[in-house]
Design a protein around this nucleic acid. Structure first.
Lengths: 163, 163
DNA sequence: TCTTACTAGTTGAACGTTCAATTTGTCTTG
DNA sequence: CAAGACAAATTGAACGTTCAACTAGTAAGA
């Protein structure tokens, strides 16, 4: 039981600023995407992952990893997008428990229609307000944070099916 | 109708890294808070805002601003925390439409019990993986992003009651 | 004063996410 | 080739959030 290392005044200020910035940015993008393309950011990421995959299809687990979704969340999301006609589910011959999620032509059209607005939002809200130097810095900072948490997240992912 | 300014390879990489880092960090903190204190991060922020207010009470609208909640979201959240006995609602004499949200003794105890674990989580996942220089950089980057979005968010906030 | 416009806050329904099963199929080892 | 362990994916309930009304009180102008 060691003593808690509280935050210094500067750390406190940075943390609050970080929280404000990331929250506002996320909500801003979410609102725009909802307004322009009638989908949450999560669905956008799922569609992007599929559109970049060979034959525009992935096993559910692969898609879950690619889009940082839990299996359950992805299952619900794919249900929803299947009803919208953006994704279809195909049986997997190799493993009959598994199934493929495939981007339909309609889904392909939807993601391509959504992309320009989305990219513009990201550019205007993020890259346009930072200097090139800051962009580089943000890249390194993000890599450090993500690198440290990757293990933890993998562990959580692994415990999913187990307990 | 001008041409879309797509992201360069470097911007693309930074954006994906940023998305991975912020998503993982948020979910990590959320999981810990849920595990250690049985509350989502949003509720934690509401309790902190109240604990820092004079007499540990704020009008609902002030609390909404302080915790970056929509009025609706806050209303639901306070309902929940009132049932838990962490917050109580007091009538407002000055404006009979309004009401005060006040932190109860139990709520005060809850937030003080939750703080050490939470701060430790934040320190380990954020400050411990960055150099002092990077912490400073992150502060400036966050300020730039938040500063730019503040107007937009205020506008959304204002439209809430109107439409 | 009456009327209209506005503001504070709440509510219920719809949505997306989490959590804890559950189903179905594969792998392993005796 | 059984038997149990494990893996892929889905499901329903509970939760928190959003959205669009809605209630009730205040402010302003005629």
């Amino acid at each position: 039981m060691s003593e808690v290392r509280w935050l210094s005044d500067e750390e406190q200020a940075v943390w609050r600023s970080y929280l404000a910035a990331t929250t506002m940015l996320r909500e801003h993008i979410e609102r725009r995407l909802q307004r322009d393309a009638q989908m949450p950011q999560t669905y956008y990421e799922v569609l992007v992952a599929l559109s970049e995959a060979p034959d525009m299809k992935l096993r559910m687990s692969e898609l879950a990893d690619a889009s940082r979704s839990s299996r359950s969340k992805l299952s619900h999301a794919v249900n929803r997008m299947e009803r919208s006609g953006w994704i279809s589910r195909d049986d997997c011959d190799v493993d009959r428990r598994g199934s493929w999620a495939r981007l339909t032509e309609k889904g392909f059209a939807v993601i391509h229609a959504a992309a320009p607005d989305h990219v513009t939002t990201v550019r205007e809200a993020l890259f346009d307000v930072l200097t090139p130097e800051q962009v580089r810095q943000l890249g390194e900072i993000s890599a450090a944070i993500a690198g440290n948490l990757a293990g933890e997240c993998a562990k959580v992912r692994a415990e999913e099916g187990t307990l």
